[in-house]
Design a binder for these strands. Structure first.
Lengths: 193, 193
DNA sequence: ATAATTAGGAACCAATTGGTACAAAACAAA
DNA sequence: TTTGTTTTGTACCAATTGGTTCCTAATTAT
């Protein structure tokens, strides 16, 4: 028995994600944030409490959407074998010839706030673990993979997860000439279709 | 024919590097920066002009000292073969059991300012290239390295550079249980002494 | 000595920061 | 329609932001 909210919650959080992703936490000020979310101060503080909580909501939104899409891609057997899917992950997200080098929000968040914010550290660690697990699974779907015991596969997944985050960082300086197909093929010691 | 400056320029820049490294650019305010540099507003603005220029000076300082040390380590034949030196790079800088997970200033800088600051983008890209070149050279100093044509070695160096930056990012969430010796041994497909 | 020049430091500045107060408006239940 | 509850937007706030001014102190060349 009250007035319903007028704005679309998901759209607002998505707007917050976009600008935090692009500018970072500290460099995003309230006016810009409100504009990106499409709401006024009143609605914002009523719904989110403060800037930091909005940032956390944006991180969760990224987890649900972007990390979710990456995990889905890595597990989609209609897109080729595991190695091919991993290559697609690298080519699609940021590293490719896409316009704006916005990198990966998880990488941004862990670098900017990880050491000073336990909540952000935990959330970003969980997201990179999710990615790592999906990569591990994809590695199990490669036919001619050598040395494929469990420990070795875990190590390979750990390498690729860090390689992914490192590539996301480097993409921000304009780096985009990496030949991911051959790079990953060499790493995995296998031919990629 | 003028009053000489009282403070030690190099010590001041080093202080700036420390706090920018720890807090990032936007999150470091003038009072904290001045305190870390050990100088007053007057001296600061006289010597550096503004906050941004001090940040650039801190980046150059990092290049000279920290990247320089890494390059020296990678080229020091008294520390084992190339593979062993690369492992030491990972174990020494941040990823090891060192206390504060401050990661790598280059990684911080490219992630925070890369897309919005051409100068920072250029400087960080140059530093990662320097690292990449040193890694490439170290790869040439491994005896039982397989598939060692030039192109393959370049690809391996590119992988390791990105792996390094990614590990630096992840270290900020408290991640520090990576077994770099076996991880890199697997990647390089060789035994590490 | 003294003139010229520069370092140092405190007071000061406008603009911006994230956040709050509050009144008007919009709804649901009665 | 009335009542109770919640959203919304504006006006407002103290504190902080990066940066400037300006006077004094220190030094060297003459």
């Amino acid at each position: 028995m009250a007035r319903p909210r007028e704005f679309d919650m998901d759209a607002a959080v998505d707007g917050a994600m976009q600008i935090f992703w692009r500018l970072g936490y500290a460099a995003t000020n309230l006016p810009e944030l409100l504009s990106a979310m499409g709401l006024s101060r009143g609605s914002f503080y009523k719904a989110f409490g403060d800037k930091h909580s909005a940032y956390l909501a944006a991180l969760d939104h990224y987890d649900r959407n972007c990390i979710g899409a990456a995990v889905r891609l890595l597990g989609d057997r209609s897109r080729g074998d595991g190695a091919a899917r991993i290559v697609q992950l690298f080519e699609q997200t940021g590293c490719g010839e896409g316009v704006a080098p916005r990198g990966c929000f998880v990488c941004n968040a862990m670098v900017e706030l990880g050491p000073h914010d336990r909540t952000v550290a935990a959330k970003t660690a969980a997201m990179s673990s999710r990615l790592d697990a999906a990569i591990y699974d994809a590695l199990g779907d490669i036919d001619d993979l050598k040395h494929d015991d469990t420990a070795s596969r875990h190590r390979k997944a750990a390498i690729i997860t860090r390689l992914y985050l490192g590539a996301q960082a480097m993409s921000k300086t304009g780096d985009k000439d990496a030949d991911w197909k051959n790079l990953l093929g060499e790493l995995l010691d296998c031919e990629i279709a």
